[in-house]
């Protein structure tokens, strides 16, 4: 896919911090995610996040594939991570 982002259209992955904090006990924006499509590993905070949509769509900044999606209804959250091959989550020991 020929990914041609326009910086007016998306925010960075920090836009995911609030919505994901409802679901996970740790801050996932500092986790390292490996793109299931191109294999590049980047912090979740570097994703290109499209927020003017029915849900949040996080795209790999390198290849543009969808790495993560979140939909929030009044009583349910849906999370799609099938575009993320692995998440490396830093934890305090």
């Amino acid at each position: 896919m020929d990914y041609q982002p326009d910086s007016d259209e998306h925010q960075d992955g920090n836009a995911l911090a609030g919505p994901l904090s409802e679901i996970f006990a740790v801050d996932l924006t500092s986790a390292l995610g490996r793109c299931a499509s191109c294999g590049v590993t980047e912090p979740v905070a570097r994703l290109h996040v499209y927020t003017r949509a029915p849900g949040l769509v996080g795209r790999c900044p390198h290849c543009g594939h969808v790495a993560l999606r979140v939909v929030r209804s009044p009583d349910t959250a849906w999370l799609d991570l099938c575009g993320t091959a692995a998440l490396r989550i830093p934890l305090t020991s």
Binding site: Y3, Q4, P5, D6, E9, H10, Y50, R52, A53, P54, G55, V57, R59, G64, V66
Partner: peptide, 11 residues
């Protein structure tokens, strides 16, 4: 006319 999009605008 709000613009909603799940990704970059293809040309």
């Amino acid at each position: 006319f709000p613009v909603l999009s799940a990704g970059p605008t293809p040309r």
